[in-house]
Design a protein around this nucleic acid. Sequence first.
DNA 1: AATGTCCAAATGGGATATCATGGGGCACTA
DNA 2: TAGTGCCCCATGATATCCCATTTGGACATT
Lengths: 152, 152
Amino acid sequence: MDRFLSSAVNRIDAKGRVSVPAHFRAVVQKRGYSELYALRCLDRPAMDVGGLDLLDRYEQRIAQEDPFLRTADDMSFFCHGDGTFLKLDQDGRITMSDFIREHTGISAEVAFVGRGNFFQIWEPGRLSTYGAEARARLLQLRQGTKPGERPE
Amino acid sequence: MDRFLSSAVNRIDAKGRVSVPAHFRAVVQKRGYSELYALRCLDRPAMDVGGLDLLDRYEQRIAQEDPFLRTADDMSFFCHGDGTFLKLDQDGRITMSDFIREHTGISAEVAFVGRGNFFQIWEPGRLSTYGAEARARLLQLRQGTKPGERPE
DNA sequence: AATGTCCAAATGGGATATCATGGGGCACTA
DNA sequence: TAGTGCCCCATGATATCCCATTTGGACATT
């Protein structure tokens, strides 16, 4: 399987390292990612993590905009300024920098969530909160609340 | 990787020096920049820093303007006159001149922000304010695409 | 079903390399 | 002579390498 699926929670050690789930590492290798690109999610306390193709997609999108308009600048600000590279060490671990901790609230444990072509990193507590909200929204949709309306 | 990515804040020492993040220095070297050029951003308290090709970008912009209008002249004045060269010392540091401090409000710490082909220098507080605004604009964009659609 | 064995993955930690930062000293110059 | 820029080195913090130990699940055996 070459997609990031399922989820797992791993502990951060005293040096700030955390193991990427073996299954994810296998996908990373199968896809030939030599480096991982991590991006602060726009509206959630999570990081999207994937290969450079993730970044390429953003850059291609930006290229379509007028480079001198603010939108293009905002987009670049986001995908370059709010992104970072992650290095897998030889034991398959990554280090949780302050850059990541600030945005996610991660401190002692990390939740890894597969998302197909990429995966996400969450603080476990916030993930379950968010998951509950997402389910509630879907439920409301089914029960006939106006689509697009944000519950709460 | 040969792009300026991610952000970091470093402290200015008693002599007015600040370390350019190692990753940025690596990119500078990989791109073969022998000198760094810093330009005052037009509409923000930040500096754009990059190789001389940074000027290409602005000159391209100027070329779009009607050469008979004052705008073109202003722009040229701006990009050719309102910039300065930055020298990396042997330890990979640059000196924060008054020219930079005045425009950015930098005093004790410097935030470096990768922007792909160049990077920016900010006063950390102002950066976070501006970043929040930029993200808000992007969110707006996304929500304009299709109401109720699951953002991705 | 309970227990034991094995293996892969996760975790811990010492040693080392890299980086940010502070500071001394020298040359040039205003 | 004070100020500035530049060179060099010291130090502490962090990141990385490498190896040891623990954990947990799959499988086999009884």
